[in-house]
Amino acid sequence: MDLTLRIWRQRNADEAGAMTTYRVTGISEDMSFLEMLDHLNEELILAGDEPVAFDHDCREGICGACGMVINGQAHGPERTTTCQLHMRHFSNGDTIDVEPWRAAAFPVVKDLVVDRSAFDRIIGSGGYVSVPTGSAPEAHATPVPKPVADLAFEHAECIGCGACVAACPNGSAMLFTSAKVVHLNVLPQGGPERESRVLGMVDAMDDQGFGGCTNTGECATACPKGIPLQSIATMNREYLRASLKGGRRR
């Protein structure tokens, strides 16, 4: 399979970037998209050029490290992570555009690598449960009904890849934030911090420069883990409830 790639090249955060065209030949349809980029990078290194920088780690679709916008779609045409996207979804002779996540809150570090630490700051402002360390509590001491456990797990599946922000026309982090809020707020372990969590995380999300939600649904369509759009409604409900309860004043 021979392809034309148009890849965003940017040396560092301060310099302007541009789309640069490359030709790759002999691509197997069984390669993952990242393996195809590895192949390109090997050729670039042999030619004495700078390889294309991109984030990746597990290459199993569970870590959330990889992520790039392929032909205008976060993680490309399939609903999966970029590492699990295979070249069989492209055709011989295709021209493929590869760009980094575009959002003011995710500045480009180099080429396709963006700084997603804004997500860490949202998590740091409430995306946890405070528990005393020491002996592990008895597992049956806190009963969790099965439907609640399933709902929590559905939202715990978020891997923080940032595809929702990349796909959103407003660069909004509502789906990411709501996944974590719903995951912890529905569980009894998350109960004591139910109000401060949602208020703190929404405040942090706004402070990081993410946009607001206009309910376009692009985030949920792009999410490789299938976090549903209704999570955002649940977070909104939690936020309004916490505000009316005066959660900020405690």
């Binding site: 148009r6 026309p169 407003n170 909004s172 420069g209 993410f210 946009g211």
Partner: peptide, 13 residues
């Protein structure tokens, strides 16, 4: 705020 949060569009919208 929304327009500022997405300063650059993708090549293929």
């Amino acid at each position: 705020r929304d327009l500022a949060a997405r300063p650059r569009q993708y090549e293929r919208k």
